[in-house]
Amino acid sequence: MPPPGGYETLKYKRNLPFRGPGGAVMVAGVAAVCAFGFWRLGLGNIEKRELKRENIWSRIYLTPMLLAEGDRDAYRRQQAALAREKEIMKDVKGWEAGRSVYHGDRHKPDQRIVLL
């Protein structure tokens, strides 16, 4: 027999609490984060290129100075080597000290330096 007042109503309603944003929102969110990241990456790449260029130009501006300094040293060594060669080969007839082994007047830097 039913109890007085009847049975309790059956609890059959679904209980599904809100568990965060839906799939579409997630996908959109990830896409937004990625888009922002790639945009920053692009900006960073442009900036990196500019930094590289800045560095290269600093080298270009220093080149003449460094080259001039190196040239003086190379010239000094060249002259000394020539003097040594003249001294060593002074008894050899027909020897021309410092003559290039190549034809043509394009300058070729010395392949070897004598370090004494």
């Binding site: 003449p64 001039a68 300094e69 003086r72 300058h107």
Partner: peptide
């Protein structure tokens, strides 16, 4: 003009 170090010594001194 010429890569020979002897060729540009004067200009090089000015640069330095």
């Amino acid at each position: 003009e010429n890569r020979n170090p002897e060729h540009c010594l004067k200009e090089g001194r000015r640069v330095t």
